[in-house]
């Protein structure tokens, strides 16, 4: 590498660096650091320990990224639910996608066997939040209600696929309460989009239903207020904005709905959606 540098680099800086090099070596010779001393041996074991830990962390970050991407795709797929005539098909397709995500989460759970989950929590938290968002979105479309943490965690209990094992080994990954809360907070953003696009499709019941639901979630979050983790209060602000957008949509629907025929409502709201999207881009 040093050769490479001397070819690429020129001028005094490089030269100085080279001049310094032998000095450093000589110093170590003089100090005579014994590579097999107790201190050096223990540091070698520290090296191993730290490397193992960092490798595991990186693997988890990668898995978390994969989970995020797949969950996002599922959410986009579910957004097409309102416009597509074959709703059931899309729900099935999303289930297939979520199964793929769960397989990834299984890998995460395998990495975490015998570990303290909170040690690597920062690596996997974004992925889990996104997963909660996707699952709760699908659940909402199906049942029009909020999925509970218990329900989510029930789907995250895995058994070993080894058939020759008599006693199937089970392990599970638990979504932490905070991840769940943040996932639900993200869900509200998706619901806001769902509301606007459902109006665009001429569905005028969904917005009212959604504003009711969002208001409940917002109430829930205000109970937590500032006592929760930092991210919660940040998302609470976004949630409030989403709620306001939905409420405005409902207002317009009520006021203008009486005078505009149903087939023209779509036009009114398609311009409104653009407006909201622009706002989003700015914020």
């Amino acid at each position: 590498m040093n050769d490479n540098e001397s070819v690429l680099g020129s001028g005094g800086f490089r030269k100085r660096k080279h001049d310094n090099f032998p000095h450093g070596q000589r110093r170590e010779e003089k100090e005579n650091v014994n590579p097999s001393s107790a201190l050096m041996t223990s540091f070698k074991s520290f090296q191993l320990e730290l490397d193992t830990r960092h490798d595991k962390y990186e693997r988890l970050v990668k898995l978390s990224r994969d989970i995020t991407i797949e969950s996002k795709r599922t959410i986009f797929l579910l957004h097409r639910f309102t416009s597509a005539p074959n709703g059931e098909e899309i729900l099935n397709e999303s289930e297939v996608k979520l199964d793929a995500v769960r397989r990834k989460i299984k890998q995460v759970a395998q990495e975490l066997i015998g570990e303290d989950m909170y040690q690597f929590h920062r690596a996997i938290s974004p992925g889990l939040q996104e997963y909660v968002e996707a699952v709760s979105f699908q659940y909402f479309i199906r049942t029009r209600s909020l999925i509970s943490v218990e329900e989510i965690n029930k789907q995250l209990i895995f058994t070993t696929s080894n058939s020759h094992d008599k006693q199937p080994h089970t392990w599970s990954l638990k979504v932490t309460p905070v991840d769940y809360l943040l996932g639900v907070a993200d869900l509200t953003g998706e619901l806001m989009r769902l509301c606007i696009s459902s109006v665009g499709n001429g569905d005028i019941d969904t917005p009212f239903e959604l504003s009711q639901f969002l208001r409940q979630i917002y109430d829930g979050f205000t109970f937590i207020g500032n006592t929760g983790p930092y991210e919660v209060s940040k998302k609470l602000y976004t949630l409030k904005q989403s709620l306001a957008k939905v409420e405005n949509a409902c207002y317009t629907l009520k006021v203008r709905g009486s005078e505009i025929p149903k087939h023209m409502l779509a036009d009114v709201f398609s311009t409104k959606t653009e407006l909201i999207d622009q706002e989003e881009g700015l914020s």
Binding site: E28, E31, V33, M40, S42, F43, Q47, L50, D51
Partner: peptide, 11 residues
Amino acid sequence: NELDSGFRLLN
């Protein structure tokens, strides 16, 4: 110095 060379082993 020994401590320093120890730390230099760590990634």
